[in-house]
Protein backbone atom coordinates (compact mmCIF):
# COMPACT_ATOMS: atom_id res chain seq x y z
CA UNK A 1 0.00 0.00 0.00
CA UNK A 2 2.86 2.29 0.85
CA UNK A 3 4.26 1.66 -2.63
CA UNK A 4 0.98 2.65 -4.19
CA UNK A 5 0.95 5.89 -2.24
CA UNK A 6 4.47 6.72 -3.31
CA UNK A 7 3.66 5.91 -6.89
CA UNK A 8 0.57 8.10 -6.81
CA UNK A 9 2.47 10.95 -5.21
CA UNK A 10 5.29 10.70 -7.72
CA UNK A 11 2.86 10.75 -10.61
CA UNK A 12 1.07 13.75 -9.16
CA UNK A 13 4.38 15.57 -8.86
CA UNK A 14 5.17 14.65 -12.44
CA UNK A 15 1.84 15.92 -13.67
CA UNK A 16 2.31 19.14 -11.75
CA UNK A 17 5.79 19.53 -13.20
CA UNK A 18 4.27 19.34 -16.65
CA UNK A 19 1.27 21.52 -15.88
CA UNK A 20 2.92 24.24 -13.81
CA UNK A 21 2.68 27.60 -15.49
CA UNK A 22 5.93 28.91 -14.07
CA UNK A 23 9.15 27.20 -14.98
CA UNK A 24 10.59 27.53 -11.51
CA UNK A 25 7.64 25.68 -10.06
CA UNK A 26 7.97 23.09 -12.74
CA UNK A 27 11.58 22.47 -11.74
CA UNK A 28 10.57 22.17 -8.09
CA UNK A 29 7.80 19.66 -8.84
CA UNK A 30 10.36 17.70 -10.85
CA UNK A 31 12.62 17.69 -7.81
CA UNK A 32 9.71 16.33 -5.81
CA UNK A 33 9.08 13.56 -8.29
CA UNK A 34 12.75 12.78 -8.22
CA UNK A 35 12.79 12.53 -4.46
CA UNK A 36 9.82 10.17 -4.48
CA UNK A 37 11.46 8.01 -7.13
CA UNK A 38 14.55 7.92 -4.93
CA UNK A 39 12.40 6.80 -2.03
CA UNK A 40 10.86 4.05 -4.10
CA UNK A 41 14.33 2.91 -5.11
CA UNK A 42 15.34 2.79 -1.51
CA UNK A 43 12.35 0.62 -0.77
CA UNK A 44 13.24 -1.66 -3.64
CA UNK A 45 16.56 -2.36 -2.00
CA UNK A 46 18.76 0.13 -3.78
CA UNK A 47 19.98 2.52 -1.10
CA UNK A 48 23.14 3.70 -2.85
CA UNK A 49 21.37 4.72 -6.00
CA UNK A 50 18.64 6.34 -3.96
CA UNK A 51 21.19 8.62 -2.37
CA UNK A 52 22.72 9.49 -5.67
CA UNK A 53 19.34 10.14 -7.26
CA UNK A 54 18.44 12.38 -4.37
CA UNK A 55 21.62 14.40 -4.66
CA UNK A 56 21.98 14.48 -8.41
CA UNK A 57 18.44 14.11 -9.68
CA UNK A 58 16.66 16.14 -7.07
CA UNK A 59 19.56 18.39 -6.12
CA UNK A 60 22.06 19.11 -8.88
CA UNK A 61 19.60 19.01 -11.76
CA UNK A 62 17.24 21.35 -9.96
CA UNK A 63 20.05 23.78 -9.35
CA UNK A 64 20.93 23.58 -13.02
CA UNK A 65 17.35 24.23 -13.97
CA UNK A 66 17.17 27.26 -11.74
CA UNK A 67 20.39 28.46 -13.25
CA UNK A 68 19.16 27.95 -16.79
CA UNK A 69 15.82 29.58 -16.05
CA UNK A 70 17.65 32.58 -14.65
CA UNK A 71 19.72 32.84 -17.80
CA UNK A 72 16.83 32.51 -20.19
CA UNK A 73 14.14 34.23 -18.17
CA UNK A 74 10.53 33.26 -17.75
CA UNK A 75 8.54 33.49 -20.92
CA UNK A 76 4.79 33.68 -21.14
CA UNK A 77 3.61 31.58 -24.02
CA UNK A 78 0.05 31.88 -25.19
CA UNK A 79 -2.17 28.86 -24.97
CA UNK A 80 -2.11 27.81 -28.59
CA UNK A 81 -1.64 24.09 -28.98
CA UNK A 82 1.05 22.37 -30.98
CA UNK A 83 -0.96 19.32 -31.93
CA UNK A 84 -4.64 18.53 -31.34
CA UNK A 85 -5.18 17.59 -27.70
CA UNK A 86 -7.39 14.53 -28.44
CA UNK A 87 -4.68 13.11 -30.69
CA UNK A 88 -2.13 13.32 -27.92
CA UNK A 89 -4.51 11.53 -25.56
CA UNK A 90 -5.17 8.80 -28.10
CA UNK A 91 -1.47 8.29 -28.74
CA UNK A 92 -0.64 8.30 -25.07
CA UNK A 93 -3.32 5.87 -24.00
CA UNK A 94 -2.81 3.65 -27.04
CA UNK A 95 0.87 3.23 -26.34
CA UNK A 96 0.52 2.90 -22.56
CA UNK A 97 -2.34 0.43 -22.76
CA UNK A 98 -0.56 -1.77 -25.29
CA UNK A 99 2.66 -1.71 -23.26
CA UNK A 100 0.80 -2.56 -20.08
CA UNK A 101 -1.01 -5.45 -21.71
CA UNK A 102 2.28 -6.78 -23.04
CA UNK A 103 4.32 -6.28 -19.90
CA UNK A 104 2.10 -6.88 -16.87
CA UNK A 105 1.68 -10.63 -17.18
CA UNK A 106 5.43 -11.07 -17.46
CA UNK A 107 6.60 -8.81 -14.71
CA UNK A 108 5.02 -10.65 -11.79
CA UNK A 109 6.37 -14.00 -12.84
CA UNK A 110 9.95 -13.00 -12.25
CA UNK A 111 11.37 -14.41 -9.03
CA UNK A 112 13.80 -13.16 -6.49
CA UNK A 113 17.12 -14.90 -6.75
CA UNK A 114 20.36 -14.79 -4.84
CA UNK A 115 22.49 -11.75 -4.34
CA UNK A 116 25.95 -12.75 -5.35
CA UNK A 117 28.13 -9.67 -5.35
CA UNK A 118 28.43 -6.39 -3.57
CA UNK A 119 27.64 -3.08 -5.16
CA UNK A 120 31.26 -2.02 -5.06
CA UNK A 121 32.46 -5.11 -6.85
CA UNK A 122 29.85 -4.82 -9.50
CA UNK A 123 30.23 -1.11 -10.11
CA UNK A 124 34.01 -0.92 -10.11
CA UNK A 125 34.91 -4.35 -11.44
CA UNK A 126 32.14 -6.13 -13.31
CA UNK A 127 30.86 -3.00 -14.96
CA UNK A 128 34.12 -1.09 -15.10
CA UNK A 129 33.72 -0.52 -18.84
CA UNK A 130 30.44 1.31 -18.24
CA UNK A 131 32.05 3.26 -15.45
CA UNK A 132 34.99 4.25 -17.63
CA UNK A 133 32.68 5.34 -20.36
CA UNK A 134 30.95 7.67 -17.93
CA UNK A 135 34.15 9.67 -17.97
CA UNK A 136 33.86 9.96 -21.72
CA UNK A 137 30.28 11.11 -21.38
CA UNK A 138 31.25 13.72 -18.85
CA UNK A 139 33.99 14.88 -21.18
CA UNK A 140 31.48 15.17 -24.01
CA UNK A 141 29.21 17.15 -21.73
CA UNK A 142 31.94 19.53 -20.67
CA UNK A 143 33.14 20.03 -24.22
CA UNK A 144 29.55 20.51 -25.27
CA UNK A 145 28.82 23.22 -22.76
CA UNK A 146 32.13 24.90 -23.47
CA UNK A 147 31.54 24.66 -27.17
CA UNK A 148 28.02 25.99 -26.99
CA UNK A 149 28.42 28.71 -24.46
CA UNK A 150 31.99 29.99 -24.75
CA UNK A 151 32.32 33.72 -25.40
CA UNK A 152 31.58 34.74 -28.90
CA UNK A 153 34.28 37.15 -29.92
CA UNK A 154 34.54 35.72 -33.38
CA UNK A 155 32.83 37.07 -36.41
CA UNK A 156 29.09 37.16 -36.48
CA UNK A 157 27.69 35.93 -39.74
CA UNK A 158 25.73 38.35 -41.92
CA UNK A 159 22.43 36.64 -41.15
CA UNK A 160 23.24 36.97 -37.49
CA UNK A 161 23.89 40.65 -37.86
CA UNK A 162 20.64 41.10 -39.69
CA UNK A 163 18.79 39.41 -36.92
CA UNK A 164 20.42 41.57 -34.29
CA UNK A 165 19.66 44.69 -36.24
Amino acid sequence: MFHVLIAAAALVCAIQAVRAARLLLSALWLAGASALVALEMYLLGAPEIAVIELSVGAGLVTVLFVFAINLTGEENLDARRTIPRPLSWVLLFGASALLLIFILPGINQSETGQVYATFREIFWEDRQLDTLLQILMILAGVLGVLGLLSDQKTDLSPTQKDRRA
Binding site: I83, L87, S88, L91, A95, L98, F102
Partner: peptide, 15 residues
Amino acid sequence: SWNVAYLVAALIVVL
Protein backbone atom coordinates in the same frame (compact mmCIF):
# COMPACT_ATOMS: atom_id res chain seq x y z
CA SER B 1 5.58 17.77 -30.97
CA TRP B 2 4.53 16.27 -34.27
CA ASN B 3 7.85 14.46 -34.53
CA VAL B 4 7.23 12.91 -31.12
CA ALA B 5 3.69 12.07 -32.17
CA TYR B 6 4.99 10.11 -35.17
CA LEU B 7 7.33 8.28 -32.87
CA VAL B 8 4.57 7.22 -30.49
CA ALA B 9 2.34 6.28 -33.40
CA ALA B 10 5.11 4.10 -34.81
CA LEU B 11 5.47 2.40 -31.43
CA ILE B 12 1.75 1.64 -31.42
CA VAL B 13 1.90 0.22 -34.93
CA VAL B 14 4.91 -1.96 -34.16
CA LEU B 15 3.27 -3.26 -31.00
